[in-house]
Amino acid sequence: MNIVVCVKYVPDAQAERTFDASDNTTDRENVDGLLSELDEYAVEAALKLVEESEGEVTVVTVGPDDAADAIKKALQMGAHKGVHVKDDAIHGSDAIATSLVLAEAIKKLSAEAPADLVITGMASTDGTMGVVPTMLAERLGLPAVTYASELTVDGGKATIHRDGDTSTQTVEASLPALVSVTDQINEPRYPSFKGIMAAKKKPVQQWGLADLGIDAGQVGLDAAWSKVDAFAARPPRSKGEIVTDDGDGGTKLAEFLTSRKFI
């Protein structure tokens, strides 16, 4: 089974994330980055599947030079090879353009060895839109089974469980298919020392837009179909009243709620 996992290199959510004031895009220069935490679950899900049967896991990312770190982490976890699509023209791409680049990269990979399964995380931890997986499926003409909290592949079908608000569902799709997974699906492994050493020898291809037959005018900030007009740091919340419970903390809490008309 050939599995392609799409991953994203994101600014660390623990750091002070901000925007680049010159073009209103996410600041990726001055904030340390890493493999999006939610993508680790996708890598782990793919590794489990090939370990149970056989196959190869290819990790694809779109991003600047530093994004190679996201591929490296996935290779250290056990993925077999990587593809890094980078091109200066990609800077500022919206989700629509990102899905185009990923789709063309997967098509190029599939020309060599068809992908049976494309696995993604549920969302990135920076943009958090959660729409790229579905856009990718739309572009590849694949059925998408999304927000999987369990995944099994058997008899040419992918079957998932998804944990909804009012029900849990079982959903199945014939392969090839796209699956997005939640953080409930597994416990991602830490790279072992052996994995870290082995990753150094694993192949990583670098592709530009020309390799994918994409015109630079189709991607990037100028081609984005939505535009950030302004951004502003949220004013810090003014520090409220803090009381220490001396036996009447609950009463004081209720008094506060009454004063704000919640009771």
């Binding site: 409220g240 609950g250 009771i263």
Partner: peptide, 23 residues
Amino acid sequence: FELVDFGVVGDLFKVLPQATSAV
């Protein structure tokens, strides 16, 4: 507590039942 409009430093097993009764 950096975010709150009102905070109680205390044991929720004591504070919440008292607040519940008051509500």
